[in-house]
């Protein structure tokens, strides 16, 4: 196992490098030069040229990349001109908020999705299956931002159960119960789509597994049906569910961008959208690299979990 983890970690290095190359190239294609963007359209050509030299933009592209990469390695993501603070500081501040939101939503959707999928498969064509199938199709069809808005209307404006937006109350907040009150709606709204996808897939995987010969073997041994479903079948189905959890984590992270907009959540997604609209290139660049790197790390965890579950992988 240790060897597998090491191998998997090493194989992440080229992926991370690839990510930096892709991000760098995309950003290099942005029309116009950052110096003009920073100094505004009234800047003199001399000032623009000086700033370009200062930023290293007169170097050839590949050297720019290596300078940028070298800085990244030292934790220097550059400086956001719009916010006038180091990019990494801003990202770290914002990312913790996103992590709380997306992490909660991910745990919710994984648990609910798998649970719903297994129940649905075990009661195929029964009432529970039909109900779950309907809710699932509704869930994967509703835009999460619209769902969030409707939740605000219903639960915050009408029923006043939860606060409308933000992460903490301005007055007297900051403790855990307050966080949970603020977190409930956005996390639920964010988890809905992924729950639907995971439930669907889990149902399909379970139905596929339940037809396998080894399930018949378990029944022929006299294993109780509960254990057949929740032990034998679910374990085998997890082999196809886990990779989807990895992909869905990416979708939850993506959906967080919308949810952060709707609920005014001070996360990294809103930061990115603002940065794009303000053409704050370094912030976009740094944010994208940072989140992608975290996602790569998460996928390593997923792969290791998969290898732990399925002994056939390591060979």
């Amino acid at each position: 196992m240790g060897g597998y983890i090491l191998k998997r970690l090493l194989s992440a290095i080229p992926v991370l490098l690839g990510i930096t190359v892709i991000v760098f190239l995309i950003m290099a294609m942005i029309p116009g030069d950052p110096a003009t963007a920073i100094l505004g359209s009234y800047a003199t050509p001399e000032n623009v040229a000086r700033l370009n030299r200062h930023l290293g933009l007169d170097e050839p592209l590949w050297r720019q990349y290596f300078i940028w990469l070298g800085n990244l390695m030292q934790g220097d993501f550059g400086r956001s001109f719009a916010l006038n603070r180091p990019v990494l500081d801003e990202i770290l501040d914002r990312f913790s908020a996103t992590l709380i939101l997306a992490g909660t939503a991910f745990v919710l959707c994984a648990l609910m999705g798998i649970l719903a999928g297994v129940i649905s498969a075990a009661r195929q064509y029964g009432l529970a299956d039909k109900a779950i199938t309907f809710v699932v199709i509704l869930g994967i069809s509703v835009p999460s931002f619209f769902l969030g808005m409707m939740m605000i209307l219903l639960f915050a404006v009408q029923l006043r159960w939860f606060p409308v937006s933000g992460m903490y109350s301005i007055w007297g907040g900051g403790d855990l119960p307050d966080l949970i009150r603020h977190l409930t709606m956005p996390a639920l709204a964010l988890s809905v789509v992924a729950t639907g996808v995971i439930a669907r897939l889990s149902r399909g995987a379970m139905l596929e597994v339940l037809r396998q010969d080894f399930i018949r073997t378990a029944r022929a041994k006299g294993v109780h049906e509960r254990r057949v479903i929740w032990g034998h079948a679910l374990r085998a189905a997890m082999v196809s569910i886990i990779p989807v959890l990895g992909i869905q984590a990416g979708f939850v992270l993506s959906g967080a961008v919308y949810i952060e907009m709707v609920f005014q959540w001070p996360g990294v997604g809103r930061m990115l959208v603002d940065a794009i609209l303000k053409r704050d290139i370094l912030l976009v660049q740094g944010g994208v690299v940072f989140i992608a790197a975290c996602y790569v790390g998460f996928n390593i965890v997923v792969d290791v979990a998969q290898a732990w579950l399925d002994p056939r992988i390591k060979t």
Partner: peptide, 12 residues
Amino acid sequence: LMAFPYILLALA
């Protein structure tokens, strides 16, 4: 490409 959460790439 799949190593990016999809919206990051779209945003970029």
